[in-house]
Write a protein that binds this DNA or RNA. Structure first.
Ligand SMILES: [Mn+2]
Ligand SMILES: [Mn+2]
Ligand SMILES: [Mn+2]
Ligand SMILES: [Mn+2]
Lengths: 224, 224
DNA sequence: CGGGATATTTAGCCTTGCCTAACTTTTTCT
DNA sequence: AGAAAAAGTTAGGCAAGGCTAAATATCCCG
């Protein structure tokens, strides 16, 4: 498919708007060229070029020098791509026996190759799951994403209160295996014992063991 | 993937060499620019351009004005692609409930997106099948294709001798459904009652019913 | 407020595949 | 054989997506 790049750009805009704490779409925070450049591993000049193409096709609105926002059409493409990605990941784990740390790379490619028909069949075969192997919600085929109840990053959790892991944001396979090794898996119970100041490491207790956790990782662990 | 085109070209050369009744590879019959042009739905000029690229990369040997043959490297790429294609087709039918007439289109895309790891897992989950939903053999991961016993096109079958369908060559979904409607499915028993001269239609009896079959289709039905 | 630093865009190029039109080689047919 | 037809190649372009270097906006700070 030649729209691989297009889908990846729109997905990146979506996630960056979301990360900025806003609803991805026409009303959300604009996303900068440099943020996209870094996220996609592509030069800023290339991003500018592609943004102009996306704007011409009405998938984003682009105000030169001040970033882009997804249009409604762009949001739909992004969400559909995220849906395919997450269903493929879940399928690889549940139906083909992959481990959760190795599926993202495969899904990053398959998300552009798998038809709606195929992805819908996968979803049915899996028993219509609501989330992927990392706890991220699977958008409906109509593009609706169930709001994530009251999941917060581990870094914003009160001390000495038991919480449960509901989602682990995208990390490299090595990092995911590290977290898994600590016992930080979906559904795991843990307690934040101490939080060093100045955005320092956290001291957590999980499965009877105590570990220091770098805030970089703690940000990626969502709990409730 | 940017090698989608490359893989499709090599696959096409492979199948055309095979169709010409020769072993695909350095020793087989050369394949003409126009045959590739027609099969791939691309202009002859485009084929020439791509053949030069493939020759430069040593996937084919190209003697200008007289066609190409696969090199050993080219044969390996072609066979690996065919393996992915056929495993994906079998998986779509057996694991996801697709019908045999709708899988080729999906597989034509997925064959370029699915990694060796994924395709090998599919093959395992399927119980290591030896052939795809159309009866075509699945090459081993080492690139070996089990020779097809003594399968012959229906057109070359003796009259009044019961035979069994072992393979149905690639046809459009509509045509495949038509054949299925006649009872011509994998494993079906049938008798050729009469064969009109001048490459005319065949009269066949299958499942108690008699049908006239155009030789175009009869060529695509292999029996033993 | 005026730079300088930083972010963004423009300009110019490249590769991949594909196209049409024109030219050349090979085949075929009288 | 010789010419017309068919097959194949070359020439010149286009769109997608990249890149680097240079130009220009915007931002931030003294
Ligand atoms: Mn992922
Ligand atoms: Mn992707
Ligand atoms: Mn097929
Ligand atoms: Mn293909």
């Amino acid at each position: 498919m030649p729209d691989t790049a297009l889908q990846d750009y729109l997905k990146a805009v979506y996630k960056l708007q979301e990360t900025a704490g806003s609803e991805p779409g026409p009303a959300g925070e604009p996303v900068s060229t440099s943020a996209l450049s870094e996220r996609l591993g592509v030069s800023q000049a290339s991003v500018t070029g592609m943004l102009k193409k996306l704007a011409r096709k009405d998938f984003v609105s682009h105000e030169p020098y001040r970033g882009v926002r997804l249009t409604e059409a762009g949001r739909r493409v992004a969400v559909a791509t995220i849906r395919r990605h997450r269903i493929v990941e879940q399928f690889l784990v549940e139906a083909l026996g992959f481990t959760w740390d190795e599926v993202d790379e495969e899904a990053e490619i398959l998300e552009h190759a798998v038809s709606e028909k195929v992805v819908n069949r996968m979803w049915e075969v899996l028993g219509r799951p609501r989330s992927d192997p990392h706890g991220s919600p699977i958008p409906s085929s109509e593009g609706v994403i169930e709001p994530e109840s009251d999941a917060r990053p581990l870094t914003e959790t009160p001390v000495e209160t038991p919480v449960r892991v509901t989602r682990i944001r995208n990390r490299s396979p090595d990092e995911l295996r590290y977290l898994g090794g600590l016992g930080l898996e979906l559904g795991a119970e843990l307690v934040l014992e101490e939080k060093a100041p100045f955005d320092g490491p956290l001291l957590i207790r999980v499965g009877g063991r105590r570990h220091a956790l770098d805030p970089r990782f703690a940000h990626a662990v969502l709990v409730e």
